[in-house]
Structures are given as C-alpha cells and as structure tokens.
Design a protein around this nucleic acid. Structure first.
Lengths: 331, 331
DNA sequence: TAAGCTTATGAAATCGGTTGTATTAATGAC
DNA sequence: GTCATTAATACAACCGATTTCATAAGCTTA
C-alpha cells in the first residue's frame, strides 16, 4: 500500500506538501502541485481514510436508520429506493452509506449509540417520521447530527428535513377523484402516528371540506386476515362510497383483493401512493402518486453531507405526480 | 471525548496497559484489569474506531453489494430482510454494515473500488450470484475478500458462500405438487443466469425425470404487459398443465393476476418461492417456500466476520420449508 | 544593499490507538 | 543469599494522515 510519504519521496517534497495538494491548499505553487499529482498517479496513490479521519476527527459515513417496527415493512421497495438514492450521492462524495436496522427499538437504539460513540458516523438520516419517536429522542439526547426524511412531527422548523408535500398530495388525489365525478370518497389509513399518513389524511380532509362533502376516514388493520371483515363493515356502513384512497400501494392491493369476495354491486375506484411495484401487479393496475424516492434519498444525503452551511436549517420539498392507470372510473 | 490516556491516568497505569485490557491480553493481572475496567466505566470510555483501525491496519465494516440490474428489483423485501440479518450480526460484533448499490454495473463497480482502495471495507458480501458477474470478477481482480450469498456459478469449492439448497427446494416443491396428484407441472423462470433460478429449475427437472413425467419449462418476461400474452400462449400449447411453479412470489402474483382474464376452464395451482409479503396479498394466498432470509443474512455476516479460520473455505446451507396456503388444489 | 514582506515549503507535533522491547518486581532453585 | 527465570507493566515507536509554526527564498522598497 502506497502512502503519502511514498508520494512525497518520489516527488521530492515533504509529506506536508503532499497533504496540502490533496486538500487543495491554495498555498501550493502550480509547479509543485503538478509534480505531486504526477507522482500520485504514478504510484496510484489513494489516501487511507482511517488515517485521514483520525487526523480530521470525523468520518465520512452517513448512518441510515430504518424504522424498527415491522409495521412499515410494507413499504420495503420504497426504502430500497431511498437507500439507492442516498448511496448514489454518498459514493459521489466518497462517503460510506451505513445502515442501522433492528427488530425492536431497543436493538436499534443500541446499534445507533454504538455507531455514534465510536465516532463512526458523521451524520444520521432518519428514513421515517413518527410521533414521539424514541429513536429521534436518542439522537437529540446524544447531541448527534441528523436529517429526517419526512416532516418532523413537531418543531419542524428546528430540524433539517426532506419530504414530499404530503398534505398537498392528499389534496391532489382527492381533487382528482372529485374531478372524475366521485362524491363519496373514503380514506383508509393504518397508523396516524406516521407523519406521512397523517399528512395525506389532512390533505384529503381539506379537499373534502372545501367541497362541502362529508368525510369518510377509517382505520384499517395491517393484518390481512382482518382486513376483509373491516372492509365489509365499512362498505355496509357507507354504501354510498364509490372511491377509496389508501396511503400505500401495498395496502391498496390488499384492499383490492379483499373487495372482490365482498361482491359489491358497484365498482370501487382506488387511488394510492408511492407508485411501487405493487401498483403494477394489481389488477386493475393502480393509479398512484409517484413520490420519487430515489430523488428523496439523493436530496436527504446531500443535505446530510453539506452540513457546512449550517447557519440555518434547511428543508426541501420534492414534488409528486399522479400516475394514471386503470383503477379509477369516472362516476 | 475521553481517550485511552484519560483512562490510563485515572487508573494510574500506562496507556499500553489500558490497550491490553481492551484487547483481553492475558498478560494483564486480574487486579489491574479490574482497576482499569472501573476507570473506563467511570469515564464512560469508548475507544475511537478510527484510531484503532489505523493501528490495526483494517476496518470493522462489511460492504454489502446489492445487484445492479433492475431485474432483481422484485425481490426487494428479500434483500431488506437479508440486510437486517447482516446488520444484526454486525452490530453485535461492533461492525458497520455499509451498502453498495448502483443503477448500472459501471456505477457499482466504481463505488466498490472506491470503498476498497480507501481501505474502508474489511470484507464484501455479494447478495446474489449470477453467471459471469463482472462485479465478482472485479472483487477477484482487486484481490478483495468476499463472501457470496448464493451458490457461485463456477468454482464453488473455492469461495465461501451461504445459500439455501435451491436444487433440493426445486425438487421439494415439485414432489409436493406430485403428491397432490398433479402430473403436468409447468415451471416458469425469467433469467437462468441467476443461480437461484437455475438451481430451482434443476431441482424441478430432476423430480420430473425421476417420475418419468415430461418437463414444461418456459421463460416468461419480467415485463407485466407481455406476461399475459406469453401465458396465453403457454396454456394453449400445453392445455394439460394443472400447476405452475414460479421462482419468486412476485412473479407468481403477476401470473396469478394474468391468468384470471384468460378464463381457463380448469383451475391452475401455483407454488412459489421466498414466502414474501406478495404471497400473502395474493388471492388465493400462495403456498410458498420460506427460505429464512434473515437467517441467511446472519450467517453470511458471521462467515464474513470470522475470516480468521480461513484455513479452508466454508460453505453453509440454510434449510427451507414449504409454507402451505391455498394456492394448491389436489388434483 | 539591507531591511521588511510575501510566498512556498519543511519539520515536528498531533489525532488515539497498538505492539515490540526494555524494565522492574516477584518467584524459585541451589 | 545470590542468580536465573518468569510475570506484569512501562516506554517508545508506529499506523498514515493533518496542521501549526518556523524557515528559506524571492521580491519590494528606501
């Protein structure tokens, strides 16, 4: 392994000069810079990141925290896309993408503190936003730097985050259904402590309110066995409903499957979120909101890396777009 | 941040003694060991991994390589489970789990060489096995240490790997269908350069051959638009088929959906692999082979971490189990 | 031409650990 | 009681970078 000293020797300069070239120090003359650069190339020199990090008192790795609860396991493809985006920016900037997962909060918490205390992580990225999240509290207690993917539940001005405008997205899908002639529109959610779901519901509620229409929001279970019973109940309670909004394609697909044996007279339109693979396996294919997870990942990684301009916390909103397929009928 | 020297000062010993305690060096007396341990706890000392890694000339991070091609994007939940398993073992052993993804081979290749040359990765884990994989070639060219999740395409004796016995699994599902009275069993695959698919097909072929039954293996497209046409063609060609094997739940679900509008007289049984969330959203729910991805991840991580016993390469086979649901009818 | 300023570079300390060797104390043999 | 041997610990060099401070060279200016 060639080191900085080897380069220095070959270029006939001192180690400090090589280091300065490496760090683009303006005090270096163009002549020696070229000389050193040539030597580096000749020796195929690559700086040792351990040594560098030790001297610099930091690391070049981001810690990506996945949700602990199995509840979010549905959105798996979404998380993989996020990680892809993050890793894309990381490798561009010579950063490492380290993941932190765990079956339960305890395990996850342990992993995170371990990573943090050993100085392994420069900045964390929380891949979700949840009400009273103990993980977030730990990040704050330990004084760690972090960025959230998703709108913080409270104090959102004080923390840097990247998100879609989920309230607007909720309004958009509702408006879309309204335009297709639907009047009785149901909204199905599973867990309002998840900020995404809460925001999308809020958007739905606003749109319905503005149109002076009644709201039909129901909680459904993540457990598929119970879903059918719940749906039967809902559809019996509100037989006027002609369209259903769900907060994730996966749930939409489950709902779609569960509706069939109910043997309803009318057809139920569906619209959903995330435009994942699930939207495309569904029959009919689901109209869904594309939220650009790769882009989200990229931007959250950018935000995490450039903590230089930390004069004020910055937030970023990624636009969304409705992808029309065949699950919505005009009424 | 408290350092080793702080601990040494408080415990009235030298820095080297503290270091030896840290590394469980047997040359340390029990008395001083206790003394030092007490001091560590008092100061809440945590060793700096950058310094440690620099001195030790290695790192404590595993590089997890996800497949570059979008073809495998189906198995997303599978990969997340693998990563969970890996991370579980990693954090137990104070290792970091770093991921490497990329849209294409070039990008992935660049990421990997970067990670490797800067001394960031101790060992790589390839999360898939594919014929003539350029990424594998790069790992070999660069002389990097690696473990494969999946059976290597060739020279499998020479590389450490963890896998299910996919040939056996293929035989098992076929035998299962035979026991239910099926005689004309179709096998659908999408890409035989993927070792998993090739092995499962091989298992199917063996079972059919042993029973003296004709084989019906067909390639289907990952693209859903074309799937229906292909299926119509297949079912017209072999109207005797009563059961279909697919190599992934995702594909099975797509097939299931595509079969409905074909309006076949007979019912087609289905059996598939991976027992993912897709198996449970399908209606009827899919009988599928559980392959224990978390366990796979854990074991491959263990193998990667304990490269000490590298006297001979070790392979590990994780058992599988058929999860019976309602997609198979007795004939 | 000597004093005063820049500018570019080098020497050495530092980051926080590990480890080979020297040193000291303790033990045992005679 | 002395010497050889062993056990436990300290000293110092080292891992491969960064960075402060000193210094030498080059240039102005009086």
């Amino acid at each position: 392994m060639t080191t900085l000293k080897d380069v220095a020797r070959l270029a006939n300069v001192s180690a400090s000069t090589v280091s300065r070239v490496l760090n683009h120090n303006p005090a270096i003359s163009t002549a020696t810079q070229k000389k050193v650069l040539r030597a580096m190339q000749k020796l195929r020199y690559v700086p040792n990141s351990n040594a560098r990090n030790l001297a610099l008192q930091h690391t070049m790795t981001l810690g990506v925290i996945l949700p602990a609860t199995q509840a979010m396991v549905f959105s798996n493809p979404f998380f993989v896309a996020l990680i892809q985006g993050i890793n894309h920016i990381c490798s561009q900037n010579n950063y490492l993408t380290a993941v932190a997962t765990g079956d339960d909060i305890q395990e996850l918490q342990q992993t995170i503190t371990m990573m943090a205390q050993q100085n392994k992580i420069r900045q964390f990225i929380l891949l979700y936003s949840q009400k009273n999240d103990p993980i977030l509290q730990i990040l704050q207690q330990l004084g760690l730097r972090y960025v959230i993917l998703g709108k913080p539940f409270e104090n959102s001005q004080a923390m840097p985050y990247v998100d879609n405008d989920n309230i607007l997205a909720g309004t958009d899908v509702t408006t879309y259904l309204l335009k297709q002639g639907h009047r009785a529109i149901g909204f199905l959610y599973s867990d309002l402590s998840q900020m995404v779901q809460a925001d999308r519901l809020l958007g739905y509620q606003r749109a319905m309110q503005q149109s002076g229409l009644p709201q039909h929001a129901f909680q459904i279970n993540d457990d598929y066995e119970q879903l059918q019973t719940q749906l039967r109940h809902i559809m019996a309670l509100k037989p006027e409903i002609t369209a259903l909004i769900t907060t994730d394609d996966m749930q939409a697909l489950a709902v779609q499957q569960a509706l069939v044996p109910l043997d309803l007279k009318r057809h139920i339109s569906q619209i959903s979120f995330n435009n994942s693979i699930f939207a495309r396996v569904a029959r009919p294919m689901l109209t869904s909101v594309e939220v650009f997870p790769v882009k989200l990942g990229e931007e959250v990684a950018r935000l995490a890396i450039q903590d230089h301009a930390e004069t004020f916390v910055s937030n970023l909103i990624i636009p969304h777009r409705i992808i029309e397929r065949s699950s919505v009928w005009t009424q």
